[in-house]
Structures are given as C-alpha cells and as structure tokens.
C-alpha cells in the first residue's frame, strides 16, 4: 500500500504541472486586463501601460509562466495584484476558514445522511422512506443562496439568535466563532446531506437484496446487527466516493454560501480574483484546488481499501 501511496504522490507532480499550464493559459485567454480593471475609468493610457509594466504583464506569456512556475517551485506564489498580499498567506488564511466550515458541514452531513439513507432503504416504500427522500429532494432543489438568506431571515432577523454577517475565527474565540459558523455549516450540510443520503439509500437497497444478507437474517441475527455489520459497511463504498467529491468541491470553495454569509473563505477569494483578473491569486487558488482534489482522490482510494478488504492497492 505504501508503494501505491508513494507512486500516487509522485504522480501529483506532472498532474499539477499540466494543471498549472492550463490554468495559466486559460486565465490569460479570457478578455479583461488587470491593470485596466484596477485603474477603472479614471486613468490615462500611460498609467495603464506603467501598471502593466509594474505587474510584469507586458512580457511574453511564456516568460511570465517561466517566472511564475520558477517562483512556485521555490515556494513563492507571488503577491496579489489587487491587494498586494502574498498569495501563500492569503491562501493559508482563507483555506483555514473554508476547511473549518467544510469539515463541520461534511461531519454533520455524514452523521445525518448515512443513518438516514440506511433507514430509508430498510423501510423502503413506507412513510419513513418517503419522508426521508422527500426532505432530501427538497434540500437538493433549494438554491443554497436562497436557503442561506432564509436562515438569515429566520435566525438573525426574526429570532435574533445568530449574527447575520461577519466572521470570527474559532481559534480566536471558540464560542463566539461557533455562532458565526452555525448557519453556513447548516446550509452546506443540508444540501450535501441530501446527496449522500440518496446515494446511501440506493446502495443499501442493492446490498439488502444480496444473498448474504438473507443468510444473515436466516441465521437469526438481530436486524440492527444485520444492518450495521453486514449492510452498512458494504453500502458505504460509493457513498465514500461521493463524500470525497463533495469534500474536494467544498474545500475548493463554496463561493455562494461564503458570499451570502460574508465568510472570508477560499471560494470568495477565487471569485474576487476572477472579477479583478488577479492572476497570481487565481493561479494560486486553482493550483491549490487541483492539489486538494488529487489528495482527496488518493484518500478515497485508501478508504476503499480500509472499508473493503477485497480491494488491494
């Protein structure tokens, strides 16, 4: 297994290199010039030209890439065109925020969705099944920005229980920080829970039809043991893949939720960088997101091996 991990880790390098080239080229292919956007309608052509020179945008694109990738290899991701903040610092700050919310949201979603999917399948075609599926479809159908705004309306405006905007890191003030996390985490968890629960239900239904489950029941095992020991574990595989994809997606930034709740996460950093054509930040974000996906995929593969002893890496 360790050889597999080492091989996959080594494969990250060419993957990320290809990603870096694609990202670098595509960003520059879209119209819009960071110097023009920064200077807006106010400045002279000379000022735009001076700013392009200052930002190094007047050099040929391959030269710009060579300089950037050279710096990246030494750990320097550059500085933001828009704010002058070092990109690595911005990514580190924002990733911490996003990772906190993602971890909590995934945790809540998994804790609720796995049992819900299992029960829905076990109680197939009953009211419980219909209720679980109905709620799942409802949350899947609701746009996250609408769900977020409704939460703000209910919990911040109407009840006054939770703050509508702002963010306090839990590393600075644990209890205070949690208050700011409740609504964004709930918004993400409800939507993602629906996805996982439906996947878990479908997979459980398949496993429940298999002969070894009938055998387990026939030998007199209590239903709870049949479900937890024989069904759940075998139904988890595809759900883990989905959870991995969700994890990668959320770590890459839940920009809509972050925008609605004013959370300074990686998603907002990415969106702001796109609008400002902040090339260094954009490149750094996309490279980081690619890195996260590669890592999550590796972890999902490893999880398969743990969950299903038949899988050999």
């Amino acid at each position: 297994m360790w050889a597999h991990v080492a091989r996959r880790t080594a494969m990250m390098v060419p993957t990320l290199l290809v990603v870096s080239i694609i990202v670098f080229a595509l960003i520059r292919a879209i119209p819009g010039d960071p110097a023009e956007i920064m200077l807006n309608d106010l400045d002279s052509d000379a000022a735009v030209a001076a700013m392009r020179t200052e930002l190094g945008l007047d050099r040929p694109i391959p030269v710009q890439y060579a300089i950037w990738i050279g710096n990246v290899l030494t750990g320097d991701l550059g500085t933001s065109i828009r704010t002058g903040q070092p990109v690595a610092e911005a990514l580190f700050d924002r990733l911490g925020v996003t990772a906190t919310i993602t971890a909590l949201a995934i945790g809540v979603a998994v804790l609720l969705a796995i049992p819900a999917g299992l029960i829905a399948a076990w109680k197939q075609d009953t009211f419980t099944d219909a209720a679980i599926i109905g709620v799942s479809i409802l949350f899947l159908s609701l746009p996250s920005f609408w769900l977020g705004l409704m939460m703000i309306w209910l919990f911040a405006i109407t009840l006054g229980w939770l703050p509508a905007i702002g963010f306090v890191s839990i590393s600075e003030d644990f209890v205070g920080g949690l208050r700011y996390l409740i609504m964004p985490v709930a918004t993400l968890a409800l939507v993602e829970m629906a996805v996982v629960a439906r996947m878990m239900r479908a997979q459980t239904l398949e496993v429940l039809r298999l002969d070894y489950v009938t055998h387990a029941r026939a030998k007199g095992l209590p239903e709870s043991l049949v479900l937890t020991r024989h069904v759940a574990r075998n139904a988890l595989g595809p759900a883990v893949t989905v959870i991995g994809l969700i994890l990668g997606g959320l770590l890459g930034g839940a920009s809509v939720t972050e925008t609605v709740f004013s959370i300074p996460g990686i998603g907002r950093l990415l969106v702001d960088a796109i609008y400002a054509r902040d090339y260094p930040v954009l490149q750094g974000c996309l490279l980081l997101i690619a890195f996260i996906y590669v890592c999550v995929n590796l972890l999902v593969d490893l999880a398969y091996a743990v969950l299903d002893p038949r899988v050999r890496l």
Binding site: I152, A164, I165
Partner: peptide, 13 residues
C-alpha cells in the same frame, strides 16, 4: 459583506 441582500438583512437584524 459582498452580497447586497445579506447586507440589508444584517441591517434589519
């Protein structure tokens, strides 16, 4: 507060 609707909601809150 990047979202104008959220900013207005915060004011109402």
């Amino acid at each position: 507060v990047p979202d104008a609707a959220s900013a207005k909601a915060a004011m109402r809150a």
